[in-house]
């Protein structure tokens, strides 16, 4: 799929979240719910970024710490929230998963002119889960391909 062709597709509403003072955009249609931090039950023999599971109104869903995933030090604040997303792992497999973020900002509507394709760093590493770059009020926000972020490995 070519970069040029995807830009218009990327336009739409995004929920922006903050990790270490950087803002990231998650497509609103992927988001199921935003909750404040819950008690997390740890699960043994999981990768470090999988913090465990939470009980969300009777449903048990896994929780991933995006800070750990993005190689930042794990840190909880008053503003820490869990964004519950709906992932499409395979063609017909849809799961819900909690993402721990520093804080949620707002829901923004991105027009195609606000979106830039993801930069080419001359290497394939580290850019698979970035859909593109959004320019909002003079800031650059990375649009995350949330499906890939979680199942990249």
């Amino acid at each position: 799929m070519s970069t040029v062709a995807t830009v218009p597709v990327l336009a739409g509403k995004y929920l922006t979240v903050v990790l270490e003072n950087e803002a990231y955009g998650i497509a609103v249609l992927k988001v199921r719910e935003i909750i404040s931090i819950h008690k997390i039950t740890p699960v043994p023999q999981m990768p470090a970024y999988v913090k465990g599971v939470i009980n969300l109104r009777g449903r048990v869903i896994p929780v991933v710490d995006l800070r750990v995933k993005f190689n930042l030090a794990a840190e909880f604040t008053e503003r820490t929230c869990i964004v519950v997303v709906q992932l499409k792992l395979a063609a017909d497999q849809v799961v819900q998963m909690g993402l721990i973020v520093d804080m949620v900002e707002e829901v923004v509507t991105l027009t195609p002119d606000m979106i830039e394709p993801k930069p080419e760093f001359g290497t394939r590493f580290g850019t698979e889960y970035i859909l593109g770059m959004a320019k909002v009020k003079g800031q650059v926000k990375m649009l995350l391909d949330i499906d890939r972020v979680v199942v990249a490995e």
Partner: peptide, 15 residues
């Protein structure tokens, strides 16, 4: 803070 989260959830739902 909670109201903000609720508003955002509402925005998400609205979207």
């Amino acid at each position: 803070f909670q109201t903000n989260i609720l508003a955002l959830n509402a925005a998400v739902e609205a979207a």
